[in-house]
C-alpha cells in the first residue's frame, strides 16, 4: 500500500508538471498583452513594464524561470491586482468556493442517495415517480434558474434567508441548495438504478433466506454494493462544484474562485491563470487518488493485493 501510494503521488506531480507546461505555452499563443486594457501607455513605458515582469525575454527563458519559481512554491504576482501574490489572491477566494462546493456536495449526495434508495425500495410507486421527477428536473434545469427562483421566493418574498453576499452561514444556505440540485439528480438516478440491480441479485435472496429484515437487507447488504459505481461519478462532480460555479457565485455575489478565473483570462493575467489552473489540476488529481482509495475501502475485490499480509 505504501509503495503504491508513493508511486501514485510521484505520478501526480508528473501530471501537474505536464499540465503546467501545456498551460504555459497555450497562454503564450493567446494574442494580446496583460496591459492592453490599461490606459494607453507609450511604447517606451510598455517596454519598461514588460521588463519588470520578465515578459521581454525569450519564451524558453520565461518558461524555465516560471517552472523554477513554481518548484519553490512561488506562483508569481498578479498583474491586475496591484502586484498581490497569486497565492494570496487565490487562497482568499478559494475558501468561499470550497465551502460552498463542499456543502452542496455533501447535502446533494446525502439527499440524492436517500431519494435513490427510497425510489428503489418502493419501485413503481408514487415515491419512485416523484424521485425520478426531481432527478429529471435537476438534470434538465440549469442551476442559475433555481438560484433565481430561490432568491425571489425564499429570500425576497419570505425573507427567511439573506438575498446576497457572503457574511456568515445563513448566507451560504440558498447558494448551497441551488448548487446541490445537480448532485441530487445525479446521485438519485445512479442510486436508484444500482439499488434495483443489487436488490435483484442472488446474495440479496440469500440474505432474505437467512431471515434478514427489509431494513437490514437495504442497509447492510445492498447499500454498500450499490455505492461502488456512484463513487466514480461523484469524484469529478465534487471538483467541478468546489472549484467554483461562475454563475451561482455571480448571482449571490459570492467572492469565489470561478468569477476571478474568468476575469483573469479576459485581461491576460498570466500568473493568475497559471495559478488557478494548477490549483484546479492539483485538486483533481488528489480527488482521483481519494476516489481510488475509496474504491478499495468499499469494494474488497479491488483492494490492493499489497494490503494482504
Amino acid at each position: 500500500m505504501g509503495k503504491y501510494l508513493a508511486k501514485r503521488i510521484l505520478f501526480m506531480f508528473l501530471t501537474l508538471f505536464i499540465i503546467a507546461s501545456i498551460t504555459f505555452f497555450l497562454m503564450k499563443i493567446i494574442p494580446g498583452t496583460p496591459f492592453a486594457s490599461a490606459a494607453k501607455l507609450p511604447p517606451a513605458q510598455l517596454e519598461i513594464m514588460k521588463a519588470k515582469y520578465g515578459l521581454d525575454q525569450p519564451v524558453p527563458v520565461q518558461y524555465a524561470k516560471y517552472i523554477g519559481n513554481l518548484l519553490q512554491g512561488d506562483l508569481g504576482i498578479s498583474f491586475q491586482f496591484n502586484n498581490t501574490p497569486v497565492s494570496d489572491l487565490m487562497f482568499k477566494r478559494l475558501g468561499p468556493s470550497m465551502q460552498l462546493g463542499a456543502q452542496a456536495m455533501v447535502f446533494g449526495t446525502i439527499i440524492g442517495v436517500l431519494l435513490g434508495i427510497f425510489a428503489a425500495l418502493r419501485q413503481n410507486t408514487w415515491v419512485d415517480y416523484s424521485a425520478t421527477f426531481i432527478a429529471v428536473l435537476g438534470k434538465a434545469v440549469p442551476n442559475f434558474v433555481f438560484a433565481g427562483l430561490l432568491q425571489y421566493f425564499i429570500a425576497v418574498k419570505l425573507g427567511w434567508f439573506p438575498v446576497l453576499f457572503w457574511k456568515g452561514f445563513e448566507y451560504t444556505i440558498l447558494p448551497t441548495i441551488a448548487l446541490s440540485i445537480f448532485p441530487i439528480a445525479i446521485s438519485a438516478r445512479f442510486m436508484r438504478t444500482e439499488m434495483i440491480d443489487v436488490l435483484g441479485s442472488d446474495y440479496i435472496l440469500l440474505a432474505k433466506a437467512k431471515g434478514a429484515s427489509f431494513f437490514e437487507i437495504a442497509i447492510k447488504h445492498a447499500l454498500r454494493n450499490a455505492l461502488i459505481p456512484l463513487v466514480t461519478v461523484l469524484g469529478p462532480l465534487a471538483i467541478s462544484l468546489m472549484t467554483g460555479s461562475l454563475v451561482v457565485e455571480k448571482i449571490f455575489a459570492i467572492p469565489g474562485l470561478g468569477e476571478q478565473f474568468v476575469k483573469s483570462i479576459t485581461v491576460n493575467d498570466y500568473p493568475v491563470i497559471m495559478g488557478t489552473t494548477i490549483l484546479f489540476a492539483a485538486l483533481f488529481v488528489v480527488i482521483i487518488l481519494v476516489v481510488d482509495i475509496l474504491y478499495g475501502i468499499i469494494d474488497p475485490r479491488i483492494r490492493l493485493s499489497g494490503g494482504k499480509k
Binding site: 441479485s201 442472488d202 446474495y203 435472496l205 440469500l206 440474505a207 432474505k208 433466506a209 437467512k210 431471515g211 434478514a212 447488504h221 454498500r224 454494493n225 468499499i298 469494494d299 474488497p300 475485490r301
Partner: peptide, 19 residues
C-alpha cells in the same frame, strides 16, 4: 427463515455478498 428453514441456492459464485 435461516433458523428453522434455510436454503442453499444454485450458483455459489453470486450468492455471497461480495463486500
Amino acid at each position: 427463515r435461516g433458523k428453522d428453514i434455510s436454503m442453499i441456492f444454485q450458483d455459489p459464485m453470486t450468492s455471497l455478498n461480495p463486500t
